[in-house]
Design a protein around this nucleic acid. Sequence first.
DNA 1: TCAATTTGTCCAATGAGTGAACAAATTACA
DNA 2: TGTAATTTGTTCACTCATTGGACAAATTGA
Lengths: 373, 373
Amino acid sequence: MTEINKSSQQNIKESNMRMVFGLIHKNEIISRADIKKITSLSATTVSSLVEELMQEGFVVECGMKQTSKSGRKAVMLRINSDGGFFLGMDVIKNAVIANLCGLDFEVKESIKLPIEEGQAMVMVMLHAIGRLTRGRKILGITIGIPGVIDPKTNSVISSTILDEDDANDMYLLLKQAMPNVNIYIKNNSGLVALCEKEFGCHNEINNLVSVDIDDGVGAGVLIDGAIYDGNGFAGEFGHMSVDFNGSRCSCGNYGCLELYASIPRILDRTKTNSLEELRNKIDDKDKKVLSDLQLICRAIAFGINNIVNLIDPELIVIGGSAPLLGETFLDMIREYFEQISLIKNKNIVFSNLTVNPVALGAVRYAFNMTFGQ
Amino acid sequence: MTEINKSSQQNIKESNMRMVFGLIHKNEIISRADIKKITSLSATTVSSLVEELMQEGFVVECGMKQTSKSGRKAVMLRINSDGGFFLGMDVIKNAVIANLCGLDFEVKESIKLPIEEGQAMVMVMLHAIGRLTRGRKILGITIGIPGVIDPKTNSVISSTILDEDDANDMYLLLKQAMPNVNIYIKNNSGLVALCEKEFGCHNEINNLVSVDIDDGVGAGVLIDGAIYDGNGFAGEFGHMSVDFNGSRCSCGNYGCLELYASIPRILDRTKTNSLEELRNKIDDKDKKVLSDLQLICRAIAFGINNIVNLIDPELIVIGGSAPLLGETFLDMIREYFEQISLIKNKNIVFSNLTVNPVALGAVRYAFNMTFGQ
DNA sequence: TCAATTTGTCCAATGAGTGAACAAATTACA
DNA sequence: TGTAATTTGTTCACTCATTGGACAAATTGA
């Protein structure tokens, strides 16, 4: 028999509690009366929900403030940033980066542990978790991995950087170490997309694609505010083809975007040795380099246009190392895009995040799973 | 101030009511006791919800049946197929096709009204609505349109077949004629995708893309069981490029899939005059035709692979006129796909629907909006 | 100083869901 | 045939989240 989720009074309370918490979180400081006005919950309900949030240590009162022309001052409420902590991890080829954040998403502590040759990756992760979580109220942990994860079982199906043992046992070993904490394993590209939505200063955009240009080319897809994984393989943007007569890629496809637009390929084609050198030549308007970049930017524009023609997101954010190349590079992409696109004036921007977007996205993911987006 | 939706007891009831109705609908006949077991609602609640559904005329009792080894027979429940009606419309270049269905989705009545030169399309639609709805309890109407619709206002932003007046006033005029009925205006490709999910015999698949190959090439995107419109332009699959060195398309892009895979282009390239002729030549293993089809099928495979690398749906359903070409055609596409894909054994099938998928999808959309999916 | 306003708590009432008790219907078996 | 066991579905008293009204406290303005 199928299991179905019935609704009960607990659902109402949880949902309203999340809403109230979300409001306090978003508004920095707010009074019970204003929460009542915004939510149209009754004063009684607001008071009782706030009371419970204070009991749990998530919310604190912070003085009185005049909020209207006349009448009694209001007691202001704010998040207690130390009321609970989330841990977000970015697992890369030879290191594990772990950030610990409070409820205000400020990074309280951050460590980067190298992974030595032959060392089991999971052990390094456990070490990082041990160091950051000691004695703290941990509400959730998210691990960002380059690879395919089965969303149902949390198991890593395939990854370019994990060996089989690491992939198989990861979730269980982590869960064993932190049995009372929710642990999420997510593809890193999706976390970047979430980070862009939540911290990228794009206001209230819920459908976006983040394009990551680095050693490889990937994409994170955000739909209705949530990371979209498809069957686990969503976001393999680097292996979208823009030329079915192009050369063969290691993935088996022909004319993949990654063959044009990964950083190594870009350096190769422009005959430069580093991003700094390339950036300087772009800024110096080096004719040869600008001409070499044409094909690259055109390929990227075709890739983005293919995304737009399929899922028409509100925003495309280009991140990874690409922003280091400067606005000229972006403008070239935009120009090609406008030439070929059915939908004009699409919002295509560089990421303006200065933090590690995987680790911070990971923290935010755990937060959203705990408190609702 | 932002408006936010609070939860109340009414939400619980509505949600549970939908669940119970959905169960009865899905199981054809079922007893209160079985509903209790499946939902884990209390017997009291099940009885009271069923009572209300019967009052509204959506559900009827239909005799007793032994459902277990021993004990009292159970009173069986089923949907009252005449308890309410939905109207779904497929608006094409020169005609309006309207289907009226009861709660069992059987087509009770269907009409196709031609649109004469110079006639206002909305008038024809109103005429169809008038004829089919008279004296019936209408629960919802969905109009399927080839074009871009603003999901917030229900207004048609652009369409290849509607003139400006028709596009602007459509929703308001329809609403005026049927003020008490919910009216939805949706892009036709999305409705096809929904129809495939609900009636295409693909069990429990919630992420799929339907590819429509006809005069044009389009796609409907279904994500988590719901039609995904993006900003309104999602599904312009025909203008995905597979060759950035290809010839220019009327849309401004180069190497669009539509230049290879629309039915007119297919007939053109294979030098045949009709789909029947082409089908016969394929079945006769005409070497020339099979060779001409290679490029077409390869282009389609590249397009599908691009979809898969971006959103990795569980299933790709190819519909429109393409299934008339037979399994050989599909196998050629699959073969090319396997050669180039990162993700193997993707489910790519022909549509097996024999009904008008836009009109039926439209009915289902209105149903889902009323009773929840 | 008093009226008006605003904040936030207390209290009785509403309504959705629950579990226990129970009557009715049916099978199994002595 | 009669009785025990099982199953179905209803009635009733109870729980819990939310609500609206009453009310006290705090504050402004006249």
